[in-house]
Measured scan of single mutants.
Amino acid sequence: MFKRLMMVALLVIAPLSAATAADQTNPYKLMDEAAQKTFDRLKNEQPQIRANPDYLRTIVDQELLPYVQVKYAGALVLGQYYKSATPAQREAYFAAFREYLKQAYGQALAMYHGQTYQIAPEQPLGDKTIVPIRVTIIDPNGRPPVRLDFQWRKNSQTGNWQAYDMIAEGVSMITTKQNEWGTLLRTKGIDGLTAQLKSISQQKITLEEKK
């Protein structure tokens, strides 16, 4: 169930391209415009997507990853294993993690069937560096609404905000991946996880038929 919630949630996290980005210092504006741009692209490019579902990787690479804190999220997933990894191991892992996100997020976007969304009203940021933004996803086919909290983090150097995690039903996506990959990290280390991520990233994206 959580895996499905995570995939549905990713439908609204794909941010804007650099040329049309919203105010990078306001995570609420980023979330709002990102959702609108993403849904528009999914709707307008269905012919290309249906002809070649792996085209979704391109959308992810162009529109999402430049505005997601990939390395920060990847380091959180590694936890204690990050500090013990060599620079070469980290570089290989982050490259594999990025390719994994292209496949995983692309597969999530393949679930698009006309969903709509509501974003919580903007709250004062103050001096906060981590801000959760509640998004409610509404399914046109009558499924119950899904309420999610996207975690946005302020870059201490640039002042810009980027998304790095999502919490559904009190469970963090980062925590879920830590639990899912924990045994592999304990037995085969970061190299074993890197190899698995490379394998997963090679899987073809498949479209979910409308139910």
Rank of each mutant, 00 (worst) to 15 (best):
L76D: 00
P15Y: 05
L10A: 05
Y81Q: 15
S201F: 13
V68H: 09
S156L: 03
L76T: 03
K154E: 03
A120F: 11
T194V: 03
Y105C: 04
K3W: 02
K29N: 14
W152L: 03
Q107D: 10
L56T: 10
D127P: 09
E45M: 09
A195M: 14
K177M: 13
Y55I: 10
P27T: 06
M173L: 15
E45I: 08
Q123K: 14
T116G: 15
A19S: 10
Y28H: 07
P144W: 07
R4I: 15
T25E: 09
Y93D: 04
Q118C: 10
A73E: 01
L207F: 12
Q162D: 03
Q115S: 03
R50V: 07
T136I: 13
N44F: 07
P145K: 04
T25C: 09
G126P: 07
T158K: 06
A19D: 01
P53T: 10
N44D: 09
I133V: 01
V135Y: 11
D165E: 00
R143G: 05
Y55M: 12
A14E: 05
A34P: 02
L56G: 07
D40C: 12
D165Y: 02
F97T: 08
V77G: 15
I200R: 08
L109P: 05
Q103A: 11
R143L: 03
I174G: 11
T129E: 13
K43T: 14
D32V: 07
K3D: 00
Y164V: 02
I13F: 15
L10N: 00
L5C: 05
R4L: 15
A51N: 13
D54S: 13
I205F: 12
A96I: 15
N141T: 09
T86F: 04
G159L: 12
P121H: 11
Q178N: 04
K83E: 04
D139I: 05
N52I: 06
Q202F: 15
Q118V: 14
K43F: 09
D139Y: 15
A22R: 07
D23G: 11
T116M: 15
Q151L: 05
P66L: 04
W161N: 06
R90N: 06
T116E: 14
V68W: 01
G79K: 03
T176L: 00
Q46H: 08
V12K: 01
Y164R: 02
N141F: 08
E169M: 06
E91I: 14
K211Y: 09
K37L: 11
P87M: 08
P144M: 06
P87L: 10
R57C: 14
G106A: 15
D32F: 13
E33Q: 05
Q89M: 07
K188P: 10
A35C: 12
I200V: 02
L65H: 12
N155M: 11
T38P: 05
A85N: 05
D40E: 09
K204E: 10
Y72I: 02
E180L: 02
V68N: 09
S201I: 15
N44R: 14
K210Q: 13
E180F: 00
Y100L: 11
K83S: 10
I167M: 04
V70G: 14
I205M: 09
A92C: 14
Q103W: 05
S17D: 08
I137A: 01
E91T: 10
K198T: 11
Q178H: 02
K3A: 01
G192E: 08
G182Y: 09
Y81A: 06
A35K: 01
L109I: 01
R153Q: 01
E33D: 08
L76V: 13
V77W: 05
Q202L: 12
M111I: 03
G79I: 00
P124D: 12
R143P: 04
A14H: 06
L185Q: 08
K3T: 02
A120M: 15
K128R: 09
L10V: 07
S156P: 04
V12Q: 02
A195I: 13
L109G: 13
Q69L: 02
R147F: 01
Q89E: 12
Y67K: 03
L125N: 13
I130E: 05
F97R: 00
Q107V: 14
N155G: 02
T38V: 12
S17E: 12
F94G: 09
T38K: 05
P121A: 00
S17Y: 07
L78W: 03
P144H: 09
Y105W: 09
Q178I: 09
A18G: 13
D127L: 11
Y67T: 07
Q46C: 05
A34G: 05
R50T: 08
L101V: 12
L11I: 07
W152C: 01
S199E: 08
D191A: 00
L184R: 08
E33I: 15
A108P: 05
G106W: 04
Q36F: 14
M6D: 01
G74L: 00
A35S: 13
D54M: 12
K198E: 06
G106N: 02
V131S: 10
G142N: 06
I137G: 02
K83P: 04
A163G: 15
D32C: 08
L5E: 01
S84I: 10
D40P: 14
D191G: 07
Q178R: 09
P53H: 15
Q115W: 02
R4G: 03
Q118G: 13
G142T: 09
D23I: 12
G106S: 15
N155A: 00
G142F: 07
T58I: 12
K210F: 13
G159D: 13
Q115A: 03
Q48G: 12
V171D: 01
N160H: 09
M111Q: 04
L78D: 00
S156M: 03
T20K: 10
Q196I: 06
T58F: 09
G126L: 10
L109V: 04
T38D: 03
F94A: 05
G114S: 06
P140V: 13
T206G: 13
N160Q: 14
Q123W: 12
E63T: 10
A110P: 15
V70D: 10
Q107G: 11
N179F: 00
K177G: 13
D32G: 10
P47M: 10
P140M: 15
E33V: 05
A19F: 03
K211E: 15
T187E: 07
R153P: 00
T20E: 07
E169T: 04
N44I: 09
Q157H: 08
D127Q: 10
I205L: 15
A108N: 06
Y28N: 12
A34L: 13
R57W: 10
L5N: 02
Y72M: 01
K37G: 10
I205S: 04
D165F: 00
A51L: 10
L10Y: 08
I138V: 07
A168I: 00
M1R: 01
G159A: 00
A14Q: 07
M6K: 02
Q196Y: 10
I174Q: 09
I130K: 04
G192M: 14
G142D: 06
Y117F: 03
W181R: 15
I13Q: 01
L11E: 00
I133N: 05
R147M: 03
D127K: 11
I137M: 12
E122Y: 09
S156T: 11
H113C: 06
I13Y: 06
A110E: 14
V60C: 08
F39Y: 02
Y28S: 07
T206K: 14
Q24E: 13
Q203I: 09
T25M: 10
A22V: 12
Q46L: 09
D40T: 13
T175K: 04
I174P: 15
L65A: 06
G189M: 09
T129W: 11
T20M: 13
R153I: 02
T206Q: 15
A22S: 12
G170C: 00
N44V: 14
P121M: 08
K188E: 05
L78P: 02
P140S: 14
I133F: 00
A18K: 13
N179D: 04
V70F: 07
L30A: 07
T194G: 08
L193W: 11
K128M: 12
L148Q: 02
L185F: 08
R147S: 11
S172D: 03
A22T: 12
T183P: 05
L11F: 15
D40H: 09
G189E: 02
K198D: 08
E209N: 08
Q62V: 12
Q118H: 14
Y55P: 04
E122T: 11
G142C: 03
V70K: 08
K128A: 01
R4F: 15
R186Y: 01
L64C: 02
A85S: 12
E122S: 13
